[in-house]
Design a protein around this nucleic acid. Sequence first.
DNA 1: AAAATTTGACCCGC
DNA 2: GCGGGTCAAATTTT
Length: 369
Amino acid sequence: MEEIMSMVVHGCKLAKELESNLAATMAAGSQQQPSLMISSSCDDIIKIFSIVKQRVDNNGMVEYHHQNQNQMLYPEAAAGTAAVPGNIDPSFQEWLRSSVTQAMDHLLFHKIPPFEMEGCSTTTRLRGVTGGGGEGGDGHVQGTLMEVSAETSAARGGGGGGSSSQRHRRSDSARTRIVPAPQFGNTEIPPDDGYTWRKYGQKEILNSKFPRSYYRCTHQKMYNCPAKKQVQRLDDDPYTFEVTYHDEHTCHMSSTAPSAHPSAAVVLPPEITHDQMNQTITMQQPSSTTLGRWLSMELGTGGSGSGSSGGAGPSSSSAVRYDREGELQYLNVANMADAMFNSGSSSSNSMEFIFPPMEDKWQHEEKKK
DNA sequence: AAAATTTGACCCGC
DNA sequence: GCGGGTCAAATTTT
């Protein structure tokens, strides 16, 4: 048991090393051989997690997660022991999946620069970044986020005039963000951004392959929250969404506002402060923060929990915040864990569950239509 | 039963 | 009239 845990930690450390080396390599330019380094590092990581998976599958760790589900007095431990492929509670998987994207969202709002590929400006379109040269490989790069001006995105499709004003003249608070689809799980939907949205429309858009979906805040009526968003897949990169936000959420200002996390639908008494609410949420569910915090601690970064200064931004309602480093680790590790969970018990190919064949998934999803 | 999604109709600016 | 955004009834999901 403890051995398995230490192996997981070791694997995480390797992943962290890979990450930092990757950043250093990128910064140093392309004279080094990043692919070799990445390849060997990935091999090591995969080996370790494969061993862990095998041991876990043969081990008695399964019983733990049920009781942890109900008594989250030690959520960190729960998050750790719940990592049992095939036996994991679906809600936990769902939470993990959304937590990854939530962290991604957080990254965006802190304006952490996406990695700069050679010759690709971070202020321009995403194409070069996600395309990876267009050789038709797995292509999709997760963790690449950027914010572009609404004007830029309005010019999409060859400058067809754009929709500067519509029925309700937009306040100019529109913010367009390029968001990669979840690498695992349902890639049809854009990553969760921490708010709950209700879809109220979908439209075929001229010169676009994919329809545009219209969402408004679930609590629009209850709290008069004007927030809306439009989601559209990019023509030339279906793994990437262009999400345009209109108006700010007002629901999170309300003392009775629902939790920012979709799965934490708790209504709190008015006297509870924002901080208290965060704590409450953390205690009530295996929230994204628990695993992240646990992993951060295990990784030796001392995830302090209360990281950046609060703000009224959308992701400020995430339960607990992290510093950048912690978030990045959290992202990577959560991805890895997600990959393991999604492997289920059927797949025996460790490579496959770490890097699932995305293309098949897409085709499968498209066929359903 | 309530909430969420789907989808055709409608509205409005250009 | 066209295109994009929204409405709202019907349907599906929880």
